[in-house]
Design a protein around this nucleic acid. Structure first.
Length: 197
DNA sequence: TGAGTGATTGACT
DNA sequence: GTCAATCACTCAT
């Protein structure tokens, strides 16, 4: 089988909700020092300009600066004092939008991810934004990496999930007054590997 | 300068 | 169901 190509920069220049849906079925791979690991994106959320739930809503800070940077790069942030979350930056430089990858179906480096997670069940490896960062070992060092083939962290072309197999819901973990009712979460229907049933 | 909150998870009751 | 982990940021002193 031909090795898939990285998604081109232009993939990340469309509307961020379109990108969030289009990322389902694509392949996220980290060529870490310990080995290659990753899998198929099965759950994602869009974060937009003028979105009260976005880190960028209150303006640029050192932490959220990657969101304002060029498209097709990683934004990895630290949250709740002990977890990282991975985003793909969208839109042209200066427009702070991104897609949070919430879950992937593990396909590569499964034993490595089992060791990092200290879990054996495939469904427990990457079924949440913090979990997949632990499994792939994504952290500060991977922040701002180029996802289009220029670094160890890459999103490759893969399946295009038909719209009928994509479920749209509200985003997870947002408090009140935080655009909690915006339908910007997307996941693959019937996937075993999403963060919630 | 300090209290409050958060795009979370896992251990525990 | 509850709660601790304990960082980056916002907002109110």
């Amino acid at each position: 089988m031909r090795r898939p190509l990285p998604l081109p920069r232009g993939f990340y220049l469309r509307s961020t909700t379109t990108i969030a849906r289009a990322l389902l079925g694509k392949l996220l791979i980290h060529e870490s020092p310990q080995g290659r690991c990753g899998g198929i994106v099965v759950e994602a959320e869009a974060y937009l300009r003028d979105d009260p739930a976005s880190h960028a809503f209150h303006g640029k800070t050192p932490r959220n600066a990657p969101m304002f940077g060029p498209p097709g790069h990683a934004y990895v942030y630290f949250t709740y004092g002990n977890h990282f979350c991975f985003n793909a930056v969208c839109r042209r430089e200066g427009i702070a939008e991104a897609v949070l990858i919430r879950a992937i179906e593990p396909t590569s480096g499964i034993d490595l991810m089992r060791a990092r997670r200290r879990r054996n069940e495939l469904r427990d490896l990457c079924s949440g934004p913090g979990k997949l960062c632990q499994a792939l070992r994504l952290g500060r060092d991977q922040n701002e990496l180029d996802l289009c083939g220029g670094s160890v962290l890459t999103i490759y072309e893969g399946e295009t999930v038909p719209r009928k197999r994509i479920v749209t819901t509200t985003r997870i973990g947002l408090g009140e007054n935080r655009a909690a009712d915006w339908p910007l979460r997307f996941y693959v229907r019937h996937s075993e590997f999403t963060s919630r049933k």
